[in-house]
Nucleic acid binder design. Structure first.
Length: 409
RNA sequence: GCGCCGGUCGUAUAGUGGCAAUUACACGAGACUGUAAAUCUUGCGGCUUCGGCCUUCGGGGGUUCGAGUCCCUCCCGGCGCA
């Protein structure tokens, strides 16, 4: 093997008896201390928060989205503006998702009550016969060798192939990019999961080929994505196929773990996959995010997470605290003169009361969403930092127990 | 004093004889996991064994099988004339 790792991943310490580890990833725009939480900035902006605020909240790396930036302002335009970093005035590491999630969110999940993580108590509910919903409206349709998207902005139709996704991502110019994949719904049956997985693997190969063509200067790292739904066999097969995949002596620089999960299935899926993925390369659990999921992921060997929750929940008035989430618009906070989370070191908590933030939300003032997002980003990013430190300090289990006890009350 | 117009669930409205009564805002509660999302759902007279039951459109009285809606009267507000 003579590939060059475009991101240098170093493991500093491992979690005893578990897959977890603390380390660093070196990128052209700086070092990421892992495990790390990646803040989502889909359209080249972390919604309602400027880059200085994102940085001050402790975020190390931002993830943009291929599909959204391709539609608007256009990847060529992003390139003309000097690439993602320069365009958005973010000086740290960046990533882009490939558009694979939009195959799901604008496809099978479109208009339905299905999301990235579904709460199911009886897993058998997850395996209904695949009902014929070909007539159901959807903005993404899987074709022969790519996906046809109907723009949610203007209805125009765009055919995205793995090659196209990689080309777009190279124009956008993040440090770490992802292979084009198909994120599947856990409600799909085994047959469909198998088909989709074969497709994702074929697309991964083509993503890697195209990436090699475009990556002449070796500046951009490509992560392959493992799928396979909730099936142990498929997950393990995918981890093996993706980690062994090689084109012209080059393989993936790291891995994404994708898919929509039932909450109960997430930890097993992550464990199956990370037992197989090579230890010396970083792993990113795509789109995951709640505190309990972060502990689970890190324990099971995940190095990177990204999630819209801190910012989306923040904008919508839900705030993280050590004792659980709160709805800031609830009547009880209207005259509460305490910060959102006592002892929190974020800008919002150091300077504002719950009563004021509640007022901003009631008054529909923009600053409400900003202050709430700053707090939530800080809360989640800082939680992951604390977990990282606990691995270094050999007290992961204590931190997890102590945190979850208070958090889940 | 006379004439005209008007008084509907917090606010603004819809309703001109036929199921507590439209819509918006406000208010209450909830949801959100690689952002179709500063969005969406839901409640908003009272009680309910969730099938209903009771009380409501300024007050009082009347017509009618049935009144927010028609008639009489009173109260309140606006405009016009004295």
């Amino acid at each position: 093997m003579c590939y060059i790792n475009l991101v240098k991943f170093t493991i500093e310490k491992k979690l005893k008896g578990k897959l977890g580890r603390a380390g660093t990833i070196e990128t052209p725009h700086g070092i990421i201390e892992t495990p790390a939480f990646v803040v989502v900035g889909t359209k080249g902006t972390v919604k309602s928060v400027n880059p200085e605020q994102v940085r001050d909240a402790g975020a190390q790396v931002i993830l943009g989205n291929t599909y959204h930036l391709y539609l608007q302002p256009g990847d060529e335009t992003v390139k003309k503006m000097g690439g993602l970093n320069k365009m958005m005035n973010w000086h740290g590491p960046t990533m882009t998702d490939s558009g694979g999630f939009q195959v799901f969110s604008l496809g099978a999940a479109y208009g339905k009550n299905i999301s990235k993580v579904i709460q199911i108590t009886d897993p058998s509910l997850l395996i209904p016969e695949r009902f014929d919903d070909t007539a159901a409206p959807r903005l993404a349709k899987i074709g022969q060798d790519g996906v046809s998207f109907t723009s949610h902005l203007d209805g125009s139709v765009h055919y995205i192939t793995p090659e196209k996704s990689i080309q777009i991502q190279h124009n956008i110019g993040a440090d770490i990019i992802f292979a084009f994949d198909e994120c599947t719904s856990p409600a799909e049956d085994l047959k469909y999961q198998e088909e989709a997985l074969d497709r994702t693997h074929a697309w991964a190969k083509r993503s890697l080929e195209e990436h090699n063509k475009l990556n002449k200067e070796d500046k951009i790292a490509l992560f392959g994505i493992v799928q396979g739904g909730r099936e142990e066999k498929l997950r393990k097969k995918s981890a093996k196929v993706i980690s062994e995949m090689e084109v012209d002596g080059k393989s993936f620089d790291g891995f994404g773990i994708g898919g929509s999960f039932a909450k109960e299935d997430m930890s097993t899926a992550v464990e199956w996959v990370n037992e197989i993925l090579p230890e010396e390369k970083p792993r990113h659990l795509l789109g995951i995010g709640e505190p309990e999921d972060l502990f689970m992921g890190i324990e099971n060997g995940v190095d990177l997470f990204d999630c819209v929750l801190p910012t989306r929940l923040g904008r919508n008035g839900t705030l993280y605290t050590k004792t659980g989430k709160i709805h800031i618009t609830n009547t009880e906070y209207r005259e509460n003169l305490m910060p959102i989370d006592e002892g929190c070191g974020c800008y919002t908590c150091k300077n504002y009361t719950k009563a004021y933030i509640a007022h901003l939300f009631h008054g529909k003032e923009m600053l409400g969403g900003t202050l709430a997002s700053i707090h939530n980003i800080y809360f989640i990013v800082n939680l992951v930092k604390n977990i990282r430190q606990s691995i270094l300090d050999d007290n992961f289990e204590e931190l997890k127990k102590e945190f979850m006890l208070k958090y889940s009350k």
